[in-house]
């Protein structure tokens, strides 16, 4: 698993960036979704992967079991997921509204702010 994850992260980020660089604003959204999944997976794997070792201290012990998963990256990922969920939901609303206002999803045609 430790070998597969970097490739999965790389693939997600590459696909996400590719989508973000397209001109369509809908593809921008898809790209952002992929990109945030890539980031989350990366943070998740940052603590190292341990199978089946919950970081809980048994009664009477003072330390968690020897091979325990690091809980902090998982907490970080949960937070990051919630944030990217909220941002993505807002971005969908924004893109939809912009599409209805400008009648185009081509980012290159959105030039009223450049004048």
């Amino acid at each position: 698993m430790n070998l597969i994850l970097p490739f999965v992260v790389g693939a997600l980020v590459a696909a996400g960036l590719y989508m973000m660089m397209r001109r369509s604003s809908i593809k921008l959204l898809i790209g952002f979704a992929l990109l945030s999944h890539g980031a989350n997976l990366l943070v998740f794997s940052a603590g190292g992967l341990v199978r089946g070792g919950a970081p809980l201290i048994e009664q009477g012990e003072s330390l968690p079991p020897a091979a325990h998963a690091d809980p902090l990256p998982q907490a970080l990922v949960l937070t990051a997921m919630v944030i990217s969920f909220g941002v993505l939901a807002f971005a969908i609303a924004l893109v939809l509204r912009t599409y209805r206002e400008t009648k185009t999803d081509d980012v290159d045609k959105m030039t009223t702010t450049e004048r």
């Binding site: 909220g86 939901a89 807002f90 969908i92 609303a93 924004l94 939809l96 509204r97 209805r100």
Partner: peptide, 17 residues
């Protein structure tokens, strides 16, 4: 609240409004 707000506003004519 947030999710239903988003769902309703995406379903109506002008989201973000």
């Amino acid at each position: 609240g947030v999710v239903t707000q988003i769902i309703f506003s995406l379903a109506t004519k002008s989201p973000l409004h």
